[in-house]
Design a protein around this nucleic acid. Structure first.
Lengths: 111, 111
DNA sequence: ATTTTATATAAGAAAATTACTATATATTGG
DNA sequence: CCAATATATAGTAATTTTCTTATATAAAAT
């Protein structure tokens, strides 16, 4: 079932994964899961400054993780890749397993 | 099907995901997927120095991503969490979908 | 035309990450 | 006890990331 990952794919995938390895950006992705949101909605949801929200989104856009649609001065962002949806499912499933006591997210908190 | 992620879980999960957002560390995880490996095996597999390999592993161990078993002077590392296996499955599935043309890993490579 | 609203962009300081070199520890074999 | 092997740890320079402040753009409203 598991083919080996190619060197290039590992490089690309880790680039994408890296973006999700950040609480605020992961929160954005979760917020966008169901439907597109405007920058100001995202900004309020995170309680961050406008430029910082914009920067997060630009960052994720440059990696192909989100896309946007413009309507007047409003930009609606949404998830651009199936891979992101899958990862999010995975994280969500993990939370459920952890809550049910079936799994541990991480085994030790040492250091 | 999708419960909302809690703030604490997002924090913890992004901490773990962050570790995978690095080509060499992701490669280690993939290398460990089937079975445990010694530090020197991992070192050779990555073509990095001994201290660097050890540092990667210590880093991943501190996050509960890998665990080890000692036998003499040899340390055998393996994946410590189900979550990591799941993420790896997800990445592997993604590569297959990308190769088959069904998905794109990322939509734009701009910037 | 001017103001307001929504967002983007730029520049830089502070903090974190990365990878290197040098050294330490601990187990095994002679 | 001494050397060799396998791995860990410490210290650090270079790079990257993160977040802030200030400014720009562009559409809409007055």
């Amino acid at each position: 079932m598991n083919n080996a990952l190619s060197v290039e794919f590992i490089q690309q995938a880790s680039d994408v994964i890296k973006v999700l390895g950040h609480p605020q950006r992961l929160k954005i992705i979760e917020y966008l899961e169901k439907e597109e949101k405007s920058v100001s909605q995202i900004q309020e949801h995170l309680s961050v400054s406008q430029p910082l929200a914009s920067q997060y989104l630009r960052h994720m856009h440059s990696r192909g993780i989100v896309k946007y649609r413009q309507e007047g001065t409003t930009y609606f962002y949404s998830i651009a890749s199936e891979f992101i949806h899958k990862i999010l499912d995975c994280v969500s499933e993990c939370q459920q397993k952890v809550e049910s006591g079936e799994w541990e997210l991480a085994m030790f908190g040492t250091e």
